[in-house]
Amino acid sequence: MRKMARHKDVSPEHLPYRRCVGVVLLNAENLVFVGSRTEGPEHTDSARPWQMPQGGIDDGEEPYPAALRELYEETNVRSVELLAEARDWFTYDLPPELVGHAWKGKYRGQTQKWFALRFTGTDSEIDIHHPAGGAHPPEFKAWRWERLERLPELIVPFKRAVYHRVVQEFAHLVG
């Protein structure tokens, strides 16, 4: 992992969590969309670059519309149906070396509301290279369909506990 300079001396316990959403996008075979991250401050483990679509909630935005927006901005996907919403918010802390660097040093980690969505389109709708019709820069360099239970082993270690909770929360949808 490369060394990163902090924007400022930041004590994590004095920073808030960034409010975010995450999407478990299930296809007709109950496999989950995962994307391989492009570079960024959270990309700390080249052996585990895979994650589900997720991102910040804008000011004044509700979680479910934010999840739909983030999914579109990262994958170009709009053909979905809501299956379930996680009962709780799931939280993770950034590793110490990322605090003060990731997200302009404003947050200690994320608190996320997760949604499970059924993908009702075809794979040709997925466009990670020109997401949102090209209006957003790509966040993924590759994608694939994966089994839900495998997701925690594919994610960077500091997000793994959240992915275990996501798997537990939505396991009934793929059983």
Results as ranks from 00 to 15, higher is better:
H164Q: 15
T38I: 13
Y72F: 15
I155F: 10
P137G: 13
L173H: 02
A5N: 14
L15W: 06
W145R: 01
Y163T: 02
E146N: 06
L154P: 06
A142F: 08
F140E: 00
A28Q: 14
K159T: 11
L82D: 06
E81A: 13
E39M: 09
A47V: 09
L25W: 00
Q168G: 11
H136Q: 13
K141Q: 14
V34K: 05
Y17Q: 05
R144Y: 07
W89C: 11
D123S: 07
V32N: 02
L154T: 08
R150F: 10
S79N: 07
T122W: 09
E125K: 05
A84D: 10
L71E: 01
D58W: 11
S79A: 08
W114Y: 15
H14C: 09
G35P: 00
E42F: 12
P95S: 08
V99R: 03
L71N: 01
K141W: 10
G100F: 02
E42W: 12
L154A: 07
T91P: 05
G35I: 01
G40L: 03
Y107M: 06
F170D: 00
R37F: 04
K113R: 13
L148R: 01
P41C: 14
D123I: 05
A66V: 00
V24C: 03
A84R: 07
D88Y: 11
T44N: 12
R6Y: 11
F119G: 01
W145Y: 04
T120E: 07
K3D: 15
W89N: 12
G109W: 01
D58E: 13
Y72A: 10
R18N: 12
A161R: 10
G55E: 00
R78W: 12
R19Q: 14
L151D: 02
F33D: 02
L71P: 01
R69Q: 02
A142E: 12
A171G: 09
W89V: 13
Y64R: 07
R37L: 09
I128D: 03
Q110T: 13
D9C: 10
V34F: 08
V24E: 01
P157W: 12
K113V: 03
P152D: 05
H136V: 14
T38R: 13
P16C: 05
K8M: 13
V174I: 08
E13H: 11
Y107R: 05
A102N: 07
F140V: 00
R147S: 11
L82V: 07
S124D: 15
W50S: 02
D123Y: 07
F90H: 12
F33K: 04
R69M: 01
T122P: 09
H129R: 14
G105F: 02
G133V: 05
V23R: 02
E61H: 04
R2A: 14
R165M: 12
M1Y: 11
T75H: 00
V156K: 12
W114V: 07
S124G: 12
G105M: 03
A84G: 04
P49R: 04
D59G: 10
E85M: 11
G175E: 13
Y92W: 13
Q54W: 11
S79M: 03
R160W: 05
G175I: 09
G55K: 00
V23E: 03
N30H: 14
S124V: 14
G100I: 03
